[in-house]
């Protein structure tokens, strides 16, 4: 299908981008990698009068890993994250998750910031950012503000972003040496959005798991942190942690059916993945 006609602008600075967004208000839409937005236009689910392509704005792409945190620019592509050796060492969760995003051609264009702004509940990055307790750097004409990923996702495709605001970067506190990560998802075909997925982190101490974190995708309108399951697993050996988290998970998740999978099957699959992820975290 073909999109409705639209105008196109490619600002060379943030200030110019804010000008355009201010002038055109609701009629304008930010374009990053285009891997979600162009599809919505082609399906005629959205018909903005102007696309503001931010890919020429300098300074929005790139990865920087410091001692206690990593910073990922909004325009950093999925593929760049997948292939970054630095990130692979500091935040292995991200490379594990990246492989599941669409296909290579999509990962070459799609961006980290775009995925977070899109807020698809079945997407990988939002769940990872929730598990990692990442902080989004949001810019507007008046300046910058920061918002925790755990507070950023408000509803189905809804975020904390106000009109005229852009995600410029994400800062992720490093969970520290010795932590382990496991990202698992189930999708019918390679590259499909997940039926259910889990982003799991923990620091093994002896036989037990500490600082357990579990965030789910594909189980509701937003990525879902599972505080009850996390608490149940905390301080237990992996097998015990798995059983305890599975038993507690009902209190955290209330998945709705999707086209192909019933709510009950989703809940069952979330429990299966919880067990697999926690066992994979064992030292």
């Amino acid at each position: 299908m073909k999109p409705p006609s639209f105008a196109y602008a490619r600002p060379g600075s943030l200030a110019e981008a804010f000008d355009l967004l201010e002038r055109h208000g609701e009629d304008a839409k930010v374009l990053a990698g285009g891997q979600s937005l162009i599809a919505t236009l082609n399906m005629r689910l959205s018909s903005p009068a102007l696309l503001v392509d931010i890919t020429a704005v300098p300074g929005l792409a790139g990865i920087a890993v410091a001692k206690d945190k990593a910073r990922i620019g909004a325009l950093t592509t999925h593929r760049a994250i997948e292939r970054s050796a630095e990130l692979g060492a500091a935040l292995p969760l991200l490379a594990q998750a990246a492989r599941h995003i669409g296909h290579v051609a999509i990962r070459n264009l799609g961006t980290f910031g775009g995925s977070l702004a899109m807020a698809d509940p079945a997407a990988e990055w939002p769940a990872c950012c929730v598990a990692l307790d990442a902080e989004l750097v949001v810019a507007r004409r008046a300046g910058e503000r920061r918002v925790r990923a755990r507070e950023f996702f408000k509803g189905l495709y809804e975020t904390d972003l106000a009109p005229g605001e852009l995600v410029t970067a994400v800062e992720i506190p490093l969970p520290g040496r010795g932590h382990r990560a496991s990202f698992i998802e189930l999708a019918r075909r390679v590259g499909d959005y997940a039926i259910v997925g889990v982003a799991a982190l923990a620091r093994p101490k002896g036989e037990t798991l500490e600082d357990v974190r579990l965030a789910y995708l594909g189980v509701g309108p937003t990525p879902a942190l599972a505080p009850h399951a996390m608490a149940a697993a905390e301080g237990k050996p992996a097998a015990g942690a798995a059983a305890a988290a599975q038993a507690a998970l009902d209190r955290d998740l209330k998945p709705a059916a999707d086209l192909h999978t019933s709510a009950a099957a989703k809940m069952h699959l979330a429990r299966v993945l919880t067990g697999r992820a926690l066992r994979a975290l064992a030292p």
């Binding site: 019918r188 039926i195 019933s262 069952h268 699959l269």
Partner: peptide, 13 residues
Amino acid sequence: ATPDRVLKALGKV
């Protein structure tokens, strides 16, 4: 034979 149908057949959901 979707995962949903296989799980139902297995009595898991």
